[in-house]
Design a protein around this nucleic acid. Structure first.
Lengths: 204, 204, 204, 204
DNA sequence: TATGAATGAGTTTTCATTCAT
DNA sequence: CATGAATGAAAACTCATTCAT
């Protein structure tokens, strides 16, 4: 039991380090973020970081992958619920775009990895794998939706799911602090769903 | 005349440095690209770089902005030609996606800047300004197309142009070497134009 | 208490760096003294210097100003003691010239700054300010001595104090290792006091 | 004859380089003065300097020694004229202090060498030799003046001449642009001569 | 476990000097 | 002779990482 308390403390501190790392890596890039600054920002000294992560690169890996998995998990869960494919996808889009600002740092981190594939090859692979899990799921839900005539059957599910992920990333990338409060924002969100080419029954 | 020869040589070499810088910065990121490596890759010694650029950051700025301007100029020219708005935009989309692989490095460079706004504030501003010129132009062409009933009049031109640019960037970001030769690629290109919500008169 | 031990260690090491810096800067000049050499001479590695001084220039500033202040303080204290102005000034001259060899490096450092005013403008100003404190004090003591008929009343105290400081600096500048042990040395010291134009009552 | 014209041109340009070198070395120090700047300031390109001086150090040597010799020559000439020792020395002091501002750069250069003896050992030696020629001459003139009862016979000529040179250097060192136009300046000049301890016959 | 001083390899940048034109 | 591009050695400074306390 005493162990557990210590264990909890350790996890708590590890989490704090990771949180700060996500912010700083996302804002300043990998190389321009010093481990000393991360340490300072959370009120520990430089050596402490290395009690929790073997080196800076491992910390970066964790900062990129762990939040990505959380986000994925959440989105996958949304697609596992009850509802028609169209409802599920609409729901997922809404959720992702509603939280896009909240996850900006995490998404930028992912993007920065994709922008430096040669430098971080294994990490890139893991990120792409993680994204693939997502697109695969979207693909299968979409295909089912097509068979139910909820979506235009003329499009390839693989292409559609890629398009959506690209769009999501592109929006996050060009996202500024001002945009989510911009009057156009709601329309942009709607347009994300439009990418799926839903069949509009009685919209006309 | 003698001057012109030297001037040409200088420009030629400057161009070579810039080309190599684009490749390396895009592949490895700013901090992980050493000026010495750029020099080595083009067959000069470390000091030579600094005969052409005052420092590494200036080289980075040039590597980001100069190609961006070239790309923009080309795209803007396409929108200035004769043709209906729909034709012009279709043309532009085709051109940009046909060359996306050719410009992957340049686009990634732009993306890496946007991903590190705090670190490169002025450069970020210039990039955003440059992008705005593009979206503004697309907006006006699109609005004209709407008035000509070529595009669905229910969408805001500002949102549409943003969406397209986001999509373009998102695709470039998640683009792998394999994708452009993938059977899905042609469909993805078509989907980019679909974002503009063209009215399909008698296409069926 | 534990803190105090560390603090003391830090101060001790800082002092060692400064001592070595004074020697090397004075002997080789600012630019020709490498931080690596300073480090090596005191048995640490290159990076350690920068744990104690933010950069080379700051180290130089400290190496110039801190000893200067020590010397000033000591001399000012001498002028604050009991005694007639003539006694005080004679005392000060004796002390300064007795220690001139001990402080040669420190004085040369000050001189090298004055010889590069354009390069070290703020430092020059601080040095001049520091010197002014000294000359002002000498001036006032001298003026009092004049009113007491200890000094020739025909001279301007401002000029006299400047002359003395110039002489002191000039001697330090042209001082060689051999001079202080030279038979002429005692006479030179006496001549420094002669600059004050003391009235020789019944010395003969 | 054609040769002579070229020869003159060379000498002229060499002189221009030297003039500029004196200014820049004096103002910024040896290391902080780049050969490229010297070249630029006189309107030639970087390589040209090395057509006239084998390397930077040789240029520095020339910039230090040549003006020093000129100044020495002039002062020695003054001491070779007709007149009593007192007249000659008074004359020399007047001349040197009248021109001290004119020669500030040259004097500072000499001082900067003396301040970096370990770095410029041969140059230091030459400078000290050159100064010795001067002090020797002053010494002999002074000794003659003592024998003629123009100067206080109680002082050692060697000490007196050293004192004067030290004073001259000290004044030049602490000299600011403002001082030569300062009301105290004339008194300071007079005090320089006072160092020689002249016997004031009927001044009272 | 946390600390934080020391390390030292690595990077940018400068600049005297060379040499082909 | 003058040019000025290229060189490459040298120096300041950074920072992840270690380790004695």
């Amino acid at each position: 039991m005493a162990r557990t308390v210590n264990e909890e403390k350790r996890l708590e501190r590890r989490k704090r380090i990771l949180e700060e790392a996500v912010i700083l890596f996302a804002e300043n890039g990998y190389s321009n973020t010093t481990t000393a600054l991360i340490a300072k920002n959370i009120g520990v000294t430089s050596g402490t970081i290395f009690q929790y992560f073997p080196n800076k690169e491992a910390l970066f890996h964790a900062a990129v992958l762990e939040p990505l998995e959380d986000i994925q998990k959440k989105s996958l869960a949304l697609l596992q619920q009850n509802g028609t494919p169209a409802e599920l996808l609409k729901n997922m889009v809404k959720d992702q775009f509603d939280h896009i600002y909240f996850y900006t740092n995490e998404l930028r981190l992912v993007q920065s990895v994709l922008g430096q594939r040669i430098r971080f090859p294994e990490l890139t692979q893991k990120v792409l794998d993680s994204i693939k899990v997502m697109t695969d799921k979207i693909e299968s839900v979409y295909a089912e939706g097509q068979s139910m005539r909820e979506f235009n059957p003329g499009f390839s599910p693989a292409m559609i799911s890629r398009s959506y992920i690209s769009f999501l990333n592109g929006v996050a990338l060009t996202l500024g602090e001002d945009i989510v409060h911009h009057p156009e924002w709601e329309n942009l969100k709607a347009h994300a769903y439009y990418l799926f080419a839903p069949v509009q029954h009685s919209k006309n």
